[in-house]
Design a protein around this nucleic acid. Sequence first.
DNA 1: AACACGTGGCA
DNA 2: TTGCCAAGTGT
Length: 359
Amino acid sequence: MKMLENFSINEFRKDLIGWFENEQRDLPWRQDQDPYKVWVSEIMLQQTRVDTVIPYFENFISKFPTIEALADADEEKVLKAWEGLGYYSRVRNLHAAVKEVAQEYGGKVPNTVEEISSLKGVGPYTTGAILSIAYGVPEPAVDGNVMRVLSRILSVWDDIAKPKTRQLFEDIVRELISKENPSAFNQALMELGALICVPGNPACLLCPVREHCKAFAEGVQKELPVKSKKKAPTAVSMAAVVLQDEEGRLIIHKRPEKGLLANLWEFPNHETILDLQAPKEQLGEFLKREYEVDAKIGQAFTTIQHVFSHLIWNITVFEGKIEGSVAETNTLKLVSLKELEEYTFPVSHQKILKSFLNR
DNA sequence: AACACGTGGCA
DNA sequence: TTGCCAAGTGT
């Protein structure tokens, strides 16, 4: 490969892995090489910081220690263990995939690219991560860290936001990866990206592979990687209502099984047209039309902002009293405060509840 | 290829 | 404070 001419592959591997063996963090998913735990950790770590994942990982593994335990668990319990982590399709895909492994592979995580990558939620990165870390197979595991580190080491100016660029780095890693210790090699590249070769100001003076780094030699390490900007999120106005009956129970609604915050619970809410024109009337009509609930809408007691990757909800939250009876369904329930603890809510609706109780 | 899909930390 | 970021995948 042209890019690797004059590059000392063996020295690079030795310096990188040697550093990793000495400096790697003591993380809960590094206690053993159980493919199931490696899998869970890799899914949790997608687009999510290590410090955020640690307590979730420990709780999740204590509740669902094995493939079989997770395969047998109720969706509600599994979602609850993910509450607050975000990207909830990750855990619904994981749950479905674990059930498939339990049924189709005798509860053993498969160890071929074809089988692993066919599992829901397991893409090219996670396939390589599980194969290399749990099974010692020399497959690339190219994530954002790896692209940043290697774009600097080899001075690659391709835009890492483009899907095609990941394939280029997979080709590079196939040349570079240690066949003796692919697990340490892949993890070392990511660990280096997390600890030393960070996005803003890389700590080049502490870098174990500085001598191999073309960007450092040229003084352009802060210019790399090239990454095009994402579209800014669009703002949406929402009205939500916390509806209470005489006994203090609250109405909650289950979101659709596909799309944003799929299968999570929420307080009744809808997008408001023209920024809250006659909001109480809109809300009352919405409740009648969608849920056949009659209610007296009270005052707005807080506003909550929920920032997603691609949109922003600005939620005005009202209180209200239920008038008459409520017909409960699979997606509409009237529950006590104690019972609410069993349901999974997006962070914004956790904030709504907290604000309601403190109003 | 481009966009949907969450959340919290940090400069 | 606003924007960018963090071990990506599905469509």
